[in-house]
Design a protein around this nucleic acid. Sequence first.
DNA 1: TATATTTGTTAGGTAAGTCTAACTTTTATA
DNA 2: TATAAAAGTTAGACTTACCTAACAAATATA
Lengths: 220, 220
Amino acid sequence: MLSYTEENYLKALLMLSFQNETRPEAGTNEMAAHLGVKPATATDMLKKLKEKNLVTYQKYGKILLTEEGKKNGITILRKHRLWETFLYEKLDFSWDEVHEVAEQLEHIQSPKLVNKLDEFLGFPEFDPHGDPIPKANGEMPSFEKTLLSELTAGETGKVTAVKDTSTLFLQYLEKLNITIGTNIKVLELIDFDGSLNIQIENAPNRSVSMKFAGSLYVKR
Amino acid sequence: MLSYTEENYLKALLMLSFQNETRPEAGTNEMAAHLGVKPATATDMLKKLKEKNLVTYQKYGKILLTEEGKKNGITILRKHRLWETFLYEKLDFSWDEVHEVAEQLEHIQSPKLVNKLDEFLGFPEFDPHGDPIPKANGEMPSFEKTLLSELTAGETGKVTAVKDTSTLFLQYLEKLNITIGTNIKVLELIDFDGSLNIQIENAPNRSVSMKFAGSLYVKR
DNA sequence: TATATTTGTTAGGTAAGTCTAACTTTTATA
DNA sequence: TATAAAAGTTAGACTTACCTAACAAATATA
Ligand SMILES: [Mn+2]
Ligand SMILES: [Mn+2]
Ligand SMILES: [Mn+2]
Ligand SMILES: [Mn+2]
């Protein structure tokens, strides 16, 4: 049985492993920052997780989830994303509101609940941010990871997911009338600062920053 | 901000106040037993709750919730019963399974979630056990509290709630095809041991014990 | 009313999870 | 490669929630 806190550490390590695309290892400071605790606290927890065979790591070395640790992390992530979907689809939460509440709901212990919820939602493959929801068996639906910033002038992409899930970004997208499924055409690339002029389906044309274009996943 | 544990203590005190019909006061041992902790632990917590002005009590005296404590307890109870209703109505949980999971869900912090859930469920007045769900303003729908054991021979009652919510009792009721809304006619009262012969709607006649008849609320 | 029983409190201890301050190791850079 | 910076660890402390054992007060009963 894992504690609420241990679950958070495992999920954090899993997400860092997705983020660090080259190698799935994480560092203590990185992990601590992700969880909003001090590095000293992360070190303490690491010892405990190692003791329980959920991570492999040695002093001053990198952290890697074991199979068991990964399995547990995936379970939490599955719950997190199913709950986000529930809040968004059934209770009319906006996509910048779901995360905070799902952060709590993901820790509810009841295998039956998770699977019934999945069924109730119609076995969704992606959450409101376009992130893949792990299946009951641990598999992750895959999706194209093309960034809007990778498109060339003239190309069109349909938004599949957001890379940045911060409230600030999500609310800005809402203002721009962009959501999962919206088509965006790149009109022009500005070499000077990497910004682009885009045409948004059902919304006025816009100029957006490089940072913006690097935060949206699209399908060509 | 109340901790998970403090919330459990307040809900326990509230429910004991409903139970002790004569006076709403509770004792340390009673409280500890209800929460599954040792009396010494309950005493510790009591001091903290008193410090926070959630209960009034003095050493060796009885425990009483303050208005603030009661308000908080009612909020938890509202969430508990709404979640039970959700699990029962939307996710096909049986009425003996809902309690355990609601025990966890009641602690999720999000006023918006509670109210949206209430709306999603159609503002239910009673939970799957027939217990009243406190309204957002703290009011409790009232209901008739006649026990099956109070009926006389020949009278018919419609089941409105269960007094005992133990798995053992709920599963027995299920076996007998009795649920909220079922009509039961008292055929005969046996003076010797207080048992009664009853006629259950859509099920064979039965003899049930005094204990059984004292655990079911009905409406004449 | 004296004594036994029940009820409630205190003292002292543990475990989880967090922190700060000081220290060590690793890595980057001059 | 020596040194500075960054990354990570350790020691010691705090808070919350729990426990056991010993004690004190209140209540029931002979
Ligand atoms: Mn969490
Ligand atoms: Mn998400
Ligand atoms: Mn609870
Ligand atoms: Mn109930």
